[in-house]
Computed example of a mutant assay.
Amino acid sequence: MKRLSYQYVVLRCVPRPDREEFLNVGVVLYCQSADFLDVAWHCDADRLAALDPGLDPGQVCTALEFVEGVARGDSRGGAASGQPLGPRFGFLKAPRSTVLQPGPVHGGVTTDPARQLEHLLERLVG
């Protein structure tokens, strides 16, 4: 099987940047050689409430659905969805909001980008 290099960012919910606390809620994975860009996410309302009881989990899910739209190239992602995969990943890895922020870019190799994305979600988000 061919080994493919990929890049990924962990999406973090940061309800109060001044406290520097966050909860991992998703992963965006980009594999240029496989023409693959996707996101997997899980929004645990109880864990978010423990981080910030005033946070609306629906707001976090809406932001994650936007990211999903950009990654998958559908209307939920607005104008960014119409770009090629590389620029869309660039858009997603750039800091945008105070509630949902990407972590640093990491890389690796895999034979199956979709399976790797699910593995990273399980390992890094829970």
Rank of each mutant, 00 (worst) to 15 (best):
Y6A: 03
Q7W: 00
Y8N: 04
R12Q: 15
R16D: 13
P17C: 12
R19T: 12
E20D: 15
F22W: 13
V27I: 05
L29E: 00
C31W: 01
A34F: 00
F36W: 12
L37I: 05
V39Q: 01
A45Y: 08
D46R: 14
D46K: 13
Q59H: 11
Q59S: 11
V60C: 09
V60T: 12
A63W: 00
L64Q: 04
E65C: 00
E68Q: 05
G69W: 11
R72I: 07
S75V: 03
R76G: 10
G77H: 04
A80D: 11
A80T: 06
A80F: 03
P84S: 00
P84N: 00
P84T: 02
L85C: 06
L85M: 10
R88M: 11
F89R: 10
G90A: 11
P95G: 10
P95K: 14
P95W: 07
S97F: 02
T98R: 12
V99N: 06
L100S: 01
P102K: 09
P104Y: 05
P104S: 11
H106R: 14
T111Q: 15
D112W: 08
P113A: 03
Q116S: 05
L120E: 09
L121T: 03
L121M: 02
R123C: 11
R123N: 12
R123F: 09
